[in-house]
Amino acid sequence: MPKIKIDPEKCKGCGLCVLYCQKGCIKQSKLLNKKGAYPVEIIEKDGCTGCSFCAIICPDLCITVYK
């Protein structure tokens, strides 16, 4: 089952991964990280297809994709 791992402390909360996730697996968190940004978090673990779009568009290398 493909899955992604997000580093919430590195995330600046730009939300580009949320925009390009085809399956709506990611959303912006309501809790701030140490940087003062709202990092993204995984909401739908089973939906991930491993397309890597989120990781490809992430400007801050926060996402690792496993398949």
Partner: peptide, 24 residues
Amino acid sequence: KIFEKPESIRDKETHYCPGCGHGI
């Protein structure tokens, strides 16, 4: 792992604004 940090980039936070294309 099918997508991870390339070897030749340092594991360091950039000073770029959120959503900036430079990081990509």
